[in-house]
């Protein structure tokens, strides 16, 4: 009896989570999964089972492949720069070289990009980056540009620009988490390092980074999954254009669902996104297991 309760104890702690996820997450996901094998689901009362035809159609679509490339570009750059900026700002804000009050104020300023809904971030940057916007004005005044730069409507600049916006919008999440992580590092480790004659960069390299490693890994993995799905920001700034240069898997999927009303194909595309994310998650779980052992 006692043994059984002991075995069940971890599940007791997990039960609210499992209940919620099973009903409100797994169930709809399973439905979407079944949609991906049907033809014209939602629009037809009696959809037809088509096997993997939807998967073949999506995977051979040139726009899908471009969207895949764009999404990887967008996601990987976002994750890398989120990490760099988040770590840099967290380190700066953690320093004891400035007064606590100044630190507190800076922290609030640095977290600003995070407190706005994606819709507002998108239209704010559209406003600032438009040919008649303030960014173009400043660039022209300083002499860095002559004439308006079409950040969001040129084929060369649109993808880097939306990536830049996403980097701006996302780094505070890393910063806050890393700030908490930094403050959890025991000061003895630094003292020991200093006694061993390590300088600042060395302490960062050999004490800070290894200590933060688990947090960084989790953050990067989660950020990857979230960024792959980023929709609102792209949709509201470029709509995937011009000419598909900012087409992401998310906008591609959305158009399939609500522009072409191909819910079967949209579900297929969603499942391919899921598969990509699973791959990353698997890598992460492996890493964790390695760390545990």
């Amino acid at each position: 009896m006692h043994k059984v309760t002991k075995k069940l104890a971890p599940f007791a702690y997990l039960s609210p989570t499992l209940l919620l996820l099973a009903v409100l997450s797994l169930l709809p996901i399973a439905m979407v999964f079944s949609y991906s094998f049907l033809n014209n689901v939602v629009m037809e009362k009696n959809p037809v089972f088509v096997g993997i035809a939807n998967y073949i159609e999506i995977l051979t679509d040139a726009v899908f492949l471009q969207a895949l490339y764009n999404t990887l570009y967008f996601t990987i750059l976002s994750v890398v720069f989120h990490l760099i900026l988040g770590l840099a700002f967290a380190t700066l804000l953690n320093t004891k070289l400035i007064s606590p009050l100044a630190r507190a104020l800076f922290r609030v300023v640095y977290i600003l990009p995070w407190v706005f809904t994606a819709t507002i971030i998108a239209i704010l940057w559209r406003l600032m980056l438009s040919p008649n916007g303030v960014v173009n004005y400043m660039l022209n005044e300083v002499g860095l540009a002559s004439g308006p730069v079409e950040f969001l409507s040129s084929r060369q600049l649109a993808l880097p620009t939306v990536t830049f916006i996403n980097i701006w919008a996302g780094y505070p999440f890393y910063m806050v988490s890393l700030l908490a992580g930094l403050q959890g590092i025991p000061s003895e480790l630094y003292e020991a390092g200093r006694i061993d004659g390590a300088n600042g960069p060395q302490l960062f390299r050999f004490v800070t980074l290894p200590q933060l490693r688990p947090i960084i890994l989790s953050l990067a993995m989660l950020d990857f999954i979230w960024t792959v799905q980023q929709f609102t920001l792209i949709w509201m700034t470029t709509g995937g254009g011009p000419i598909h240069v900012t087409e992401m898997l998310s906008t591609f999927t959305y158009k399939l669902a609500f522009s072409s009303y191909e819910f079967g194909l949209a579900s297929t595309s969603a499942f391919i996104i899921l598969a990509i994310c699973m791959f990353v998650a698997l890598f992460y779980v492996r890493q964790q297991r390695a760390a545990d052992e």
């Binding site: 079409e150 409507s153 649109a158 470029t238 254009g241 011009p242 000419i243």
Partner: peptide, 19 residues
């Protein structure tokens, strides 16, 4: 044609005109 046509939306064109 006003620059930025490829991502311009209907509400944007009106602001160009009013300005």
């Amino acid at each position: 044609i006003t620059p930025g046509a490829f991502t311009m939306r209907e509400p944007d064109k009106v602001t160009e005109f009013t300005n």
